[in-house]
Simulated scan of single mutants.
Amino acid sequence: MTWRGPTYRMVDGERIDGAWCHIWRRNQMGGGYYLDDLVVFADGRITCGEHTDLAGLARKLAEGRWTATDPEAPPLPDPPSKWESRSGEPLTPKGFLLEVADRVEALNGRPTSGQRCWDAIRRYERQPTEPNRELLRAAYLAVPAHLRIYVLGDMDRQDRPLRILFTETGEAVDGDGPVVTAEMHQSVLDYFARVNKAVQDEGERRAAQHADDPAEPGRPPLVSSETVYPQGWPDEPGLFVLRNDFPAPVEFAGDSYASVQHGYWALSAAEASDRSAIRDAASGREAQELGGRAPRRSDWSDVRLAVMAGLLRAKFTQHPDLARVLLSTGDARISYTGFADSPFWRDVPDDRGRNWMGRLLELTRSELLAGRLF
């Protein structure tokens, strides 16, 4: 069963996160089955053509109205040896119901059955007593049967160490596996110790590699929106000073421009006459219109990022009041949105949006701060 997401629904202004997977629904008219999407939400609501909950899902699975496996697929043959088998238990209605319940727990940030099993493993490691072994057995059996082979995260051994541990000495694991000895039980504890050591070592290595990660979460993303002021910019434009068409004269590459927008499009033009016309345009929007129609320099795709970075650096170093606005955004990710700029420069909710303007503004902000420190 493959779960996909994220998805969500809104309830009274609150976002309820969810995840979804495919199941088969029985056609009430014709009697056959068809694929549909089953969506599970953090509040326990389940949707698949109609709304229900875990209890309702259990009834529909028991009645055969919904099924997690293809009803027309032939049954899988029993493995010749349970111990030797590399496959998990077959997916059953009970197992799917437990998996859905786990998905609800995960959406709420609570431990799943697999995580609770690991908690029981660690408790048994600390105190390998018979009561703790029974608690571990119960935690293992609470994991959906078809997912138990994944609970240790070791696809070489799968869940065999646990199956060995739950088998009494002198008995064969799974009925057809090796006869368990006290040494085999100890080997399981040794295995857990090695796993814990490997996890600890990896955690220390990752901590060293990520030592420069911020200790605290950053500010929420900041959205820089496009706007139009037909009567002129307000006296206190606020964050709109981050926009490229904001009228802040810049000296760059031996010339003066009325805004970053003027400079960018003027420098993109191949002909001197076009560069002059764009530079002298009445507004940033007019400069963009003229620049978009003018023949471009042959190397423009290679140098445009460097030019824009230089223009932003000039804008905010030459206008300390604007620099203070940019610095006030802290470490927030800047999403530069709008309609006039190409997806290369702005944030678009698909794979076309590169958000280079937002990224360069963040870089300029970092350079301004570094300039204060060094």
Rank of each mutant, 00 (worst) to 15 (best):
W3T: 02
R4G: 01
V11I: 13
I23P: 00
G32C: 03
D36Q: 14
L38V: 10
V39H: 01
I46F: 12
C48W: 06
H51P: 01
D53T: 04
G56D: 07
R59G: 02
R59T: 09
A62L: 06
G64S: 07
G64E: 08
R65F: 09
W66D: 03
T69G: 03
E72L: 15
A73Q: 15
P75W: 10
P77G: 07
P79D: 00
E84R: 14
R86P: 00
S87G: 05
P90I: 00
L91S: 02
K94V: 08
V100K: 13
V100C: 05
A101D: 05
D102M: 11
V104Q: 13
V104I: 15
E105V: 02
L107R: 13
W118G: 03
W118R: 07
R123P: 00
E125P: 00
Q127M: 12
Q127G: 06
P128Y: 05
E134N: 11
L141D: 11
A142W: 10
V143C: 12
V143N: 08
L147R: 14
I149F: 00
G153N: 05
R157E: 05
R163A: 11
I164T: 12
I164C: 09
L165M: 14
T167Y: 12
T169R: 10
G177E: 12
P178R: 05
T181P: 08
A182Q: 10
E183M: 07
L189G: 04
D190I: 10
Y191L: 07
A193K: 14
A193R: 15
R194A: 14
V195E: 10
V195G: 00
A198K: 08
Q200V: 13
A208P: 00
H210I: 00
D212L: 07
P214E: 08
A215W: 04
E216I: 03
P217W: 08
G218Q: 06
P221H: 11
V223F: 15
Y229R: 13
Y229K: 13
P234F: 11
P234H: 11
V241Q: 02
R243C: 12
F246C: 06
P249N: 02
V250M: 08
F252R: 01
D255W: 09
S259P: 01
V260E: 00
H262R: 09
S268A: 15
E271G: 09
A272R: 06
D274H: 12
R275H: 01
R275V: 00
D280N: 12
S283V: 08
R285D: 09
E286D: 09
G291S: 08
P295S: 04
R296T: 05
D299G: 11
W300L: 11
R304M: 10
V307P: 06
R313F: 13
Q318C: 05
P320G: 01
V325P: 00
V325G: 02
L327G: 03
L327R: 13
I334N: 05
G338Y: 09
W345T: 03
D347I: 04
R359K: 15
E362S: 09
T364L: 03
T364R: 01
R365L: 01
S366P: 01
L368E: 02
L369Q: 14
L369P: 00
A370E: 12
F374P: 09
